[in-house]
């Protein structure tokens, strides 16, 4: 065996299991010698140069030793293979939202608990930063665990997904849940979150938004606003919340529910318009500027913009459900 062949064989076998190396090395060496002999032909006395040239030719035909080594090792050349990929996607789809939600809740609660005078910007900043880190960590952990499982168990990390593999799949495995219903339920849930936030608005102190210095940390709402206006405001919100709860529990947007929701929406916008245009609804010290009237009008425009957007969105949901 020439030095060149020896180096080539060493390159092939160096990353293979130690117990298999001598056998593979002997076989490749014999093959290379056979191939060289076959090309040199019988009955001739080859020159060393010709032998060396043919040897090079044979080695180049065998190709990159790293590739040959990979063929021998027969180990997966990927981190997450096709068998584990469905499990990987499933884990990301379920674990990441859960981690994100937990990270947001934990950070909001701990920031408020540890900093009694926490500003909203501080809460958002800390929560966003820590949530991103939590999501990246979860992503890395899922990837590493499933990747190692894919290796250690020869693709067996997907054992749990076996029922999803062809051959064992039956029509009973079909996901029969109504995707429209899920979407309506998700939108209703989000709507409820916004309604609760709006309901709490009259109690939110300005200090939470870095403008506490303007009115000594009081609320955004005029403290002299008649309680009847607040009752009306909460009454409308309660009606809207009831509509969203019906949508959430039935997972559908029935015409009567959509109609009640639409009417309540517009009625509340009228109520807020009257309230904003007939008295100072916002705290006087926040609107104690020459442009106070303009601010009220901008607020009214914003209210109607939200209502119109909500009406269009509700109508689209209704049409989608009744055309599917």
């Amino acid at each position: 065996m020439s030095a060149l062949t020896e180096i080539y064989v060493d390159n092939v076998t160096r990353h293979l299991p130690e117990d298999a190396r001598p056998d593979i090395a002997a076989e490749i060496t014999a093959t290379i010698d056979d191939m060289v002999d076959a090309r040199l032909g019988e009955g001739t006395d080859p020159t060393p140069d010709r032998t060396a040239a043919i040897e090079r030719e044979v080695l180049e035909e065998l190709g990159d030793p790293a590739v040959l080594s990979r063929e021998y090792s027969n180990s997966p050349q990927h981190f997450i293979g096709p068998n584990s990929y469905p499990l990987f996607v499933w884990a990301l789809r379920w674990v990441l939202p859960l981690v994100g939600l937990l990270a947001v809740l934990t950070n909001v609660v701990t920031t408020i608990a540890l900093s009694p005078e926490a500003q909203i910007g501080e809460i958002i900043g800390k929560t966003a930063g820590n949530t991103v880190i939590a999501l990246l960590t979860a992503f890395a952990a899922i990837t590493i665990i499933i990747g190692l499982g894919d290796r250690g168990m020869d693709g067996g990390a997907a054992e749990a997904m076996r029922k999803r593999q062809s051959g064992t799949w039956t029509v009973d495995d079909l996901d029969r849940r109504d995707s429209h219903g899920k979407q309506i339920r998700a939108e209703a849930g989000l709507g409820l979150v916004f309604i609760v936030a709006f309901a709490m608005a009259p109690f939110i102190p300005t200090s939470l938004f870095y403008v506490g210095h303007l009115n000594g940390g009081e609320t955004f709402i005029n403290p002299d606003l008649g309680f009847g206006w607040l009752l009306g405001y909460w009454g409308f919100l309660a009606l809207l919340a009831a509509v969203e709860i019906v949508k959430f529990t039935t997972a559908s947007a029935r015409p009567i529910v959509v109609l009640i929701g639409g009417i309540a929406d517009v009625a509340m916008a009228v109520f807020l318009t009257v309230a904003l245009l007939t008295q100072p609804v916002l705290h006087p010290e926040l609107t104690n500027t020459p442009n106070a009237d303009v601010q009220q009008i901008i607020t009214v425009i914003a209210v109607w913009a939200i209502v119109i957007w909500d009406q269009v969105s509700t109508w689209r949901t209704y049409r989608r459900e009744h055309h599917s």
Binding site: A30, T31, D34, M35, A38, G63, E71, Y72, N74
Partner: peptide
């Protein structure tokens, strides 16, 4: 043996590359 199989297959019209055949035999 490896090389004889390589030539047998080639002569039979199933040309195969050595770097594919040897690992395959082992498998």
């Amino acid at each position: 043996y490896g090389y004889s199989l390589l030539t047998t297959l080639t002569e039979a019209g199933v040309p195969t590359e050595a770097n594919t055949l040897y690992p395959l035999l082992r498998r």
